[in-house]
Design a binder for these strands. Structure first.
Lengths: 297, 297
DNA sequence: TAGTTGATATAGACAGGAGTAATGGCAATG
DNA sequence: CATTGCCATTACTCCTGTCTATATCAACTA
């Protein structure tokens, strides 16, 4: 068939058994329906309706066709209904990528509420390094990513989500260091430093900062997770470089203490990134605007 | 959706993963496809494709939609294929109505050959009185009818199919009557007459003919089937009024003998009738033209 | 039997929109 | 860094789907 719209006229005519009523359903006039049916009949070289004095009835072939057209239309309706549901947030999928610890400490708390409000939206969280996240955003495998800024990529939209402050924390026998300001050089020279693994942006950040200050930062211990950084510091194994917001609980509980550093550590911006030429899914928009409280353009 | 044609563009784009190739499939240009996809996306308020440097890929929603569109299209294709088969006589249905004995003696012999040639065309034979057949033709319940002519109904097409000759036949002890010509009055007065039931056109025919000749035809025996008319005559129970063509076998075998009547019985025309404003199915056309050897207009 | 009602079919005109050609922009590739 | 192979945009053309008006037909109805 060269024109699927004809099937719509056929469908309603078959349902209503009356061209005029079908026309009303289709919001067109009766001659248009008549014409459409005729075109369809000619295209298929069959008679689909018996024209009776008081309406039309399906021929055998018409009835055969109707069965299939009916199924096809139900199929399309079903698809459209499901898409409407996705648009209305009653179902859908939310795929978010976040680098390293941002997932647990920034995203997770907000996701809880989102999940309560939209339990049928399937969550898919991936984590990886910032380049990995960017890659997946570009490939369309995730809806958006949460990464540390700055980022310069013209094909991405970057929204500042929050700002975090890194700091050195100590616990156990090193807790007393908190009383007096220290310089980074002092720390590096006299205390065991615990840093995140080399690949992390956090590690690169402090390493570069130290280098600018002419300090060579050589960690005593390298760990692959923020949780371990915290635990090692709590155990008094050394001084961990962590994001302050991520250790709030421990600081308030007195299990960790923030060291006063003579040099100031610049805050680091956390951003939401997604493809410029791609529309965010309704679920993404809802999460970003309503839960993460980030204003979308 | 207000325009089903957009789904076609969507379908091929999803299959080809490339707007330009989809355009080729659709015999339109790439910008048209691009435009169509865009319209569909706006109508559904979703993004269906990720535009990649080397083509497009389906988004999650796009993939969901594709499943359904694919099914819908298969459904329509299936319908169109079946209709094509009906047009090509590899399948279909043939619904024929014939009054009384015409079915067995005229139609059946030809149907055998038709069935051999087109074994997958379903045959549906209905028989009834001429008015019943006409009614069913008009209601579209049968494709065409085979009835005795004349018939004056402007909404029907009437084609003369064959001509039959009625006659009186006898068997057994009455067979000797065949040697000398008899008048209808003689027959009516001195011999037991066996006629078909009152409702039949055959009965009305001979009754009217007799009345015109001033003869009152009072049957000794009334029967409801041609077979019984034949059997009773063969058994010598009386003289049956039958269609000569229907008793050919018995005449040739000598089981029955045709009486010589002084009056001539006019031949009766048998016709094919169908609705003027309805197209005959391919199967009907084939049977009528090729097997019944009746030329269609 | 003429008139009415409730259907579908046909004819002709018109406007909206699908399609086109030309062009631009972008990303990957060698 | 030019080339290639994509998709998007624009401006214009022309087709076709739709409309109005009218014809036609069958079944009632008075």
């Amino acid at each position: 068939m060269e024109n699927l719209e004809l099937y719509r006229a056929f469908y309603w005519t078959a349902v209503e058994r009356n061209l005029s009523r079908a026309a009303e359903r289709l919001f067109i006039t009766q001659p248009s329906v008549s014409h459409a049916i005729k075109q369809l009949e000619e295209a298929l070289s069959v008679t689909l309706f018996n024209r009776m004095p008081k309406g039309v009835t399906l021929t055998e072939v018409g009835a055969l066709l109707f069965e299939h057209v009916d199924k096809a239309f139900r199929e399309l309706e079903s698809a459209e209904r499901q898409i409407a549901e996705i648009n209305n947030l009653v179902r859908g999928e939310l795929r978010i990528g976040s680098s390293d610890s941002l997932c647990k400490y920034y995203l997770l708390p907000h996701l809880g509420q989102f999940y309560n409000e939209h339990p049928d939206i399937h969550l898919d969280l991936v984590h990886g390094t910032t380049p990995e996240i960017i890659r997946q955003v570009k490939d369309g495998r995730i809806d958006f990513g949460i990464v540390r800024l700055p980022l310069n990529d013209d094909s991405l939209v970057t929204l500042e989500a929050t700002v975090v402050q890194d700091c050195f924390v100590a616990g156990g026998r090193f807790a007393e260091l908190a009383s007096k300001p220290l310089s980074l050089a002092d720390l590096a020279a006299h205390y065991p430093i615990i840093l995140f693994a080399k690949t992390s942006s956090s590690r690169q950040f402090i390493q570069e900062l130290a280098a600018q200050l002419g300090v060579e930062l050589q960690p005593e211990i390298e760990l692959a997770s923020v949780d371990l950084l915290i635990e090692f510091a709590k155990a008094g194994m050394g001084i961990s470089f962590v994001t302050k917001q991520f250790v709030m609980n421990e600081l308030e509980a007195g299990e960790l203490t923030e060291l006063k550093l003579k040099e100031s550590i610049p805050p680091r911006r956390i951003g939401i990134v997604y493809m410029k030429n791609r529309r965010l899914s309704p679920a993404s928009r809802a999460l970003i605007e309503q839960h993460l409280q980030v204003k979308l353009p």
